[in-house]
Computed example of a mutant assay.
Amino acid sequence: MKEPVARFDHRFSDPGAQETPWPVTRETLESAQLFWITTVRADGRPHVTPLVAVWLDDALHFCTGPEEQKALNLAANPNVVLTTGCNEWKQGLDVMVEGEAQRVTDRPALERLAAAWAAKWEGQWRFRPNGAGFSHDTGGAPDEGESVAHVFAVKPSKILAFGKGGFSQTTYLPAS
């Protein structure tokens, strides 16, 4: 991937603050344990919920059950924002990824993603690729069996990085 174009926004940054280098932002996306996804309901109301995601092939990937609210929202409007960071005021980096969520159904891509999920969380998230996305053991009662999850990729249309404790805002746009 070509490195995205960084734009430092002085309006929302402390005097003397510096833009966040892309490798720092990318590492935050790669290592974050939790993201918050914002989708839009069919009636226009926002819906926000936590989830796990992996950064792979220059996109942020997540999965959801086909009957979950976020899946229903995505069927009507694929635009999302995925957010990660920390709730500290004077330290850390908060990162927002904006883009369209696109279903991933390609078997080789799903296999790579399943391996990435397992590696990132040391085996706590074990998915098996299938024709619809992922299947996994629910871990519940024997009659609950397996559940299915649709997998989505978000190729960023914009990434925002907010540095704290020397406040800064850096916007990344895809390289042309």
Rank of each mutant, 00 (worst) to 15 (best):
M1N: 01
K2T: 13
K2I: 10
E3L: 11
P4T: 10
V5T: 15
F12V: 05
F12P: 03
F12Q: 11
F12G: 09
S13P: 12
Q18A: 12
Q18M: 03
E19Q: 13
T20N: 11
T20P: 03
P21V: 06
P21E: 02
E27M: 11
E27R: 15
E27I: 03
L29R: 11
E30L: 04
S31G: 03
L34K: 02
F35A: 02
T39H: 00
T39D: 01
D43I: 12
R45Q: 15
R45A: 15
H47K: 03
H47N: 14
V48D: 02
V48S: 10
V54I: 07
V54G: 08
W55G: 09
D57K: 07
L60V: 11
L60W: 04
H61E: 01
H61T: 05
C63M: 04
P66E: 08
P66C: 09
E67P: 02
E67I: 11
E68C: 14
K70M: 06
L72F: 11
N73M: 03
A75E: 15
N79P: 06
N79R: 15
L82A: 04
L82V: 05
C86L: 02
C86A: 13
G92V: 01
D94R: 11
V95A: 07
M96I: 02
M96L: 15
V97G: 09
V97D: 00
R103K: 07
V104I: 15
A109W: 12
A109K: 13
L110D: 03
L110C: 09
L113E: 06
A115G: 07
A116W: 01
A119D: 13
A119V: 01
K120Y: 00
K120F: 05
E122I: 04
G123W: 09
G123S: 10
G123K: 05
W125M: 11
R126H: 04
R126Q: 14
R128Q: 14
R128S: 13
N130C: 14
G133N: 08
S135G: 14
H136Y: 15
H136L: 15
H136T: 14
D137N: 13
T138S: 12
A141F: 07
P142E: 07
D143H: 14
E144F: 10
G145C: 03
G145F: 08
S147M: 13
A149Q: 15
A149K: 15
V151K: 06
F152G: 06
F152N: 06
A153R: 00
K155C: 00
L160R: 05
A161V: 06
A161D: 06
F162V: 05
G163Y: 05
K164G: 03
G166K: 03
G166W: 03
G166Q: 08
F167L: 00
F167S: 01
Q169G: 00
T170L: 11
T170K: 02
T170A: 03
T171W: 01
Y172G: 02
Y172Q: 01
L173C: 01
A175S: 12
